[in-house]
Design a protein around this nucleic acid. Structure first.
Lengths: 199, 199
DNA sequence: GTCAATGTAGACAGATCGGTCTCCTTCGTT
DNA sequence: AACGAAGGAGACCGATCTGTCTACATTGAC
């Protein structure tokens, strides 16, 4: 079990830094100090190793984001905390989740572009659970189902957009900017709901 | 000159579909019907070919987006037309710019993750020029420099976020949703400016 | 000590990688 | 016809790819 985790951790680091297809399994074993036979004892193929890295990152990233958001006093604070967490990630103030090379799930989807590919589906699944997390916080603020859905998706869109801008353009303030927009969208709906109550 | 364009076009199609490192130059020459010697006559290396595909896509995508937005009667219509264009692209109603496999510049940045890599910088440059296009339309609406910058970046963030959601999650309505948020942000600033005038 | 589980180093195999180079062909210009 | 530019087929090279397998070592349980 120890060796398996080590392989996944090292492979993730290399794939995240250089891309899945740019790194061969010989590099993974060289840097992990694990024998090739052991690698193939644990994983039937390179692709299985890739899938394991996606799952590893999913758990790592999700638990980190939850840790940064779930102690917030209310739904709005949680959403803003999400963008604060992104800001720390983009600016590499956070050592728990690896130096920033963009979003692993976006990157892996680029290399496994077919929507039906199992690895791509793993990435989609991660995105859906992030949307679910956001939706949970938004529904602490608003009870109107339509508002919850619309706003959750907007926040998720801003999150993904900011991540791309941070990575592709090197915009270190992308999260701060996206946070301001998210806050604006939230406040606009407070106003809407206040109006509805008054009428 | 004819052979060069053919190589770039075919290489782009393959790299966009499967990823740069997943496709070797032998596949490119096999599918383009161009001899290997000819390829190396035109490009000193695979990386130079990759760079040429990024430039090719930059021109293709930018001219397409401009074509879809510059005839709009005003800045707001142009921004909304941008999202309509994205919608057609995600839903493959547009044959001029290749079937949808996410954003080539995001995908290539994933494989050339180092911000200092020339190919990565080409992708960043494309994103900056898209931001410039958006900024041009927004400045047709608002003269306040701060509003132009803030709103342009918000629109660009929504554009990137929607693209990721369309690709990773297969969300075919991502552009429509992002458009609604962009419209909301625009209208909120009309209200702001109307208030300023009244005061 | 014995045995099974786990792991090691690395040879091996067929395939492909990016890039170099030989020999030849075609075409346009002089 | 001669020449140079452009291009073709594909052999060749050293390296690496993914995956298989041999011979051996270590460790923990019995």
């Amino acid at each position: 079990m120890e060796r398996r985790e080590q392989l996944v951790s090292v492979a993730f680091g290399l794939f995240y830094r250089y891309g899945v297809h740019a790194i061969g399994i010989n590099r993974v074993i060289a840097e992990s100090g694990v024998a090739k036979k052991t690698l193939y004892n644990h994983f039937p193929s390179k692709e299985a190793l890739v899938a394991a890295t996606v799952e590893y990152r999913d758990r790592q990233f999700s638990s980190w984001i939850e840790g940064r958001t779930q102690l917030a006093p209310d739904g709005q604070s949680a959403i803003l905390a999400l963008f604060d967490a992104l800001d720390d990630w983009f600016n590499e103030r956070e050592k728990l989740i690896h130096p920033f090379h963009g979003c692993y799930f976006i990157n892996v989807s680029a290399e496994f572009s077919d929507l039906n590919h199992p690895v791509h589906q793993q990435c989609a699944s991660h995105k859906r659970s992030m949307l679910g997390l956001i939706s949970g916080y938004i529904s602490q603020i608003f009870s109107d189902e339509k508002t919850v859905v619309t706003l959750s998706e907007a926040v998720a869109t801003l999150k993904e957009g900011a991540t791309v801008q941070a990575h592709v353009m090197g915009d270190l303030k992308a999260a701060v900017k996206a946070k301001a927009i998210a806050e604006e969208l939230l406040k606009a709906r407070f106003a809407d709901h206040a109006t509805a109550v008054l009428l």
